[in-house]
């Protein structure tokens, strides 16, 4: 579409304006013809592509041609061959006149008085509606269970006995399966699909590892276990930077220090990753002797209450 109005006679397209064709009109008309033709061709291409088996790029382009041709055609048509004259229309006040408002108020109040004459009935009726509204809320309760201890516990603490750690296929894990600088995700045995129980097993540098007070025997050799879920919004903290001994959450970049109780060192997380007390059973497999040191994943208002 060219931009200016040279060569055009003012009012050429106005209602009643005489039709005198100019070169620009011819050009515009040819453009509209071309646009509509492209549209038809686009539709045909679409049909052919579809029948031949379909292909996303060709389908998209064909659709765009079919639709865009119509759009361009109409746009040019409107621009060159439809009235561009300005019309003035009066705007009338939105508010009703004083008499209309008075008449409405009177009519409404008349009805209101009829209702008020049986005031008790009206009040009782409103009460019934209110009670019905309250009653209608109860079915919402069926949507989900009461939020109980589930947020605070994981399967590790369920049985009250040591639970083996297993990999995604349910195979128990031995300390020897791990190596320095490796990253292993584990679950409590029989709960490999629990969303809240995924655990990170890391083999740390014992020289530099500083277990938190009271958790000196939570490690097996130099293997330490933390919850895999970020204490910010619960994303799996799957990024292990082995040279820096940092765990990073890819969602919001919270960073945890593996050697120092998984305390947060950067980002929005406010609490360390909960630690899991580890041991080995008689057959030499890793077990958890209890639940995580704190509720896993993001915080909630009564997280600290038992």
């Amino acid at each position: 579409m060219s931009t200016d109005g040279d060569g055009r006679r003012p009012g050429a397209n106005g209602p009643g304006g005489g039709e005198r064709r100019t070169r620009r009109d011819d050009r515009a008309e040819r453009l509209v013809v071309a646009a509509f033709t492209v549209s038809i061709v686009g539709a045909l291409i679409l049909a052919v592509v579809y029948i031949a088996g379909g292909q996303a790029q060709l389908e998209g382009v064909a659709l765009a041609l079919a639709l865009g041709g119509i759009g361009l055609g109409i746009a040019v048509w409107a621009r060159y061959f439809m009235a561009a004259d300005e019309v003035v229309e009066e705007r009338h006040a939105l508010a009703s006149t004083e008499e209309e408002v008075t008449a409405f108020t009177a009519a409404f109040e008349a009805g209101e008085q009829t209702l008020a004459r049986r005031g008790l009935l009206a009040k009782l009726g409103l009460g019934a509606l209110g009670a019905l509204g309250l009653a209608a809320l109860f079915p919402i309760r069926s949507l989900g269970p009461r939020p109980g201890q589930g947020l605070k516990n994981t399967a590790y603490g369920d049985g009250g006995r040591p639970l083996r750690l297993v990999d995604a296929d349910g195979v128990p894990i031995r300390p020897a399966d791990l190596s320095r600088s490796s990253l292993t995700t584990a679950w409590p045995e029989g709960h490999e699909h629990d969303a809240d129980a995924s655990t990170l097993l890391l083999q740390v540098d014992r020289e530099r590892f500083r277990p938190l007070p009271g958790r000196e025997d939570w490690v097996v050799g130099d293997i330490v276990a933390y919850s895999k879920l970020c204490t910010h919004t619960g994303c799996p903290v799957g990024l292990y930077q082995t040279e820096l001994d940092l765990l990073l959450c890819p969602c919001h970049q919270s960073t945890f220090d593996v050697l120092n109780g998984a305390e947060p060192v950067f980002g929005p997380a406010a609490r360390p990753l909960p630690q899991l007390p580890l041991d080995v059973d008689e057959e030499g497999f890793l077990v958890a002797t209890g639940d995580f040191s704190a509720p896993v994943a993001g915080g909630f208002w009564d997280r600290g209450r038992t």
């Binding site: 382009v61 639709l67 119509i70 746009a75």
Partner: peptide
């Protein structure tokens, strides 16, 4: 039509 064409493209 032009919006639709853009989105399809």
């Amino acid at each position: 039509f032009l919006t639709a064409a853009m989105l399809c493209a």
